[in-house]
Amino acid sequence: MSESEPAAAAAEAGEQRAATALLASGIEHTLTRHGRVGSLEEAAAARGVTPADIVKTLVVRRAEDDYLFVLVPGDREISWPKLRAHLGVNRLSMPDAATARDVTGYERGTITPFGSLTAWPVVADTTLTGRTISIGAGAHGVAATAYADEVVRALAADVADVTDPR
């Protein structure tokens, strides 16, 4: 078995887990497979959306073994003061790549709440709603395009102003 075979098997398992969770959610969506890309703009072009419509799923740690997902539009970034105030905490951090993989089952760049090993709470930025978005689907170059309000509903996401423009 080559070094890349376990990675390929993990990616396939991640994609399958996300696809199964998306189907189970009942939301209407389209899966897109385009392979690895080098930038947000390349990903948007490959998916037929604008960079603002690409949704990054970020893993945030509140405390030991207490994480949440934050859904951030591609043209925005987390506002740590806003997110801390919204959650009523003084400290938040982002776990390293290995920890994020361990708690979600997905490697960075493929993370999605759909099919995560643990159903962590989800916070979606207010700018996501009312439009079609493209969210990662468990493997590099795989995404689900869906109506944001349905994604928010399916994930029971808490919608809040937690980002700023990049």
Rank of each mutant, 00 (worst) to 15 (best):
M1H: 08
S2Y: 07
E3P: 08
S4I: 15
E5P: 05
P6T: 10
A7W: 09
A7Q: 10
A9D: 13
A9L: 11
A10G: 04
A11L: 09
A11N: 11
A13T: 11
Q16R: 14
Q16P: 06
T20G: 11
T20I: 15
A21T: 06
L23N: 11
A24W: 02
A24N: 13
A24M: 04
S25R: 01
G26C: 10
G26K: 03
I27E: 05
E28V: 15
T30Q: 15
T30P: 00
T32S: 15
T32Y: 10
T32N: 12
R33N: 01
R33G: 12
H34P: 03
V37D: 08
G38K: 08
E41W: 01
E42F: 02
A43F: 09
G48N: 05
A52E: 15
T57I: 05
L58V: 07
V59E: 09
V60Q: 07
R61K: 12
R62S: 15
D65G: 06
L68C: 00
L68T: 01
L68D: 00
V70S: 04
V70L: 00
V72I: 03
P73D: 05
G74N: 12
G74A: 11
D75P: 01
I78E: 08
S79R: 04
P81E: 06
R84M: 15
A85G: 13
A85S: 10
A85E: 14
A85Y: 05
H86Q: 10
L87K: 07
L87M: 03
V89G: 12
L92P: 09
M94W: 03
D96E: 13
A97G: 06
A97L: 07
A98P: 01
A100N: 11
T104A: 12
T104H: 01
T104L: 05
G105E: 14
Y106F: 11
E107D: 13
R108P: 03
T110Q: 14
T110R: 11
I111F: 07
T112D: 05
P113S: 12
P113D: 12
F114C: 05
F114K: 09
G115K: 01
G115V: 06
S116G: 11
S116A: 15
L117N: 12
A119Q: 13
A119M: 10
V122Q: 00
V123C: 07
V123P: 00
T127G: 08
L128H: 06
G130F: 10
G130R: 07
R131H: 06
R131N: 08
I133E: 02
A137F: 12
A137T: 15
G138W: 08
A139C: 09
A139K: 12
A139Y: 02
V142K: 02
V142G: 06
V142A: 14
A143N: 07
A144V: 07
A144S: 08
A146E: 03
Y147P: 06
A148T: 05
A148H: 04
A148W: 02
D149A: 02
D149T: 10
D149Y: 00
E150W: 03
R153Q: 14
R153L: 03
A154S: 12
A154I: 03
A156C: 09
A156S: 15
A157H: 00
A157Y: 02
A157N: 00
D158S: 14
D158E: 14
D158I: 07
V159G: 01
D161L: 02
V162A: 02
T163Y: 00
D164F: 04
P165A: 13
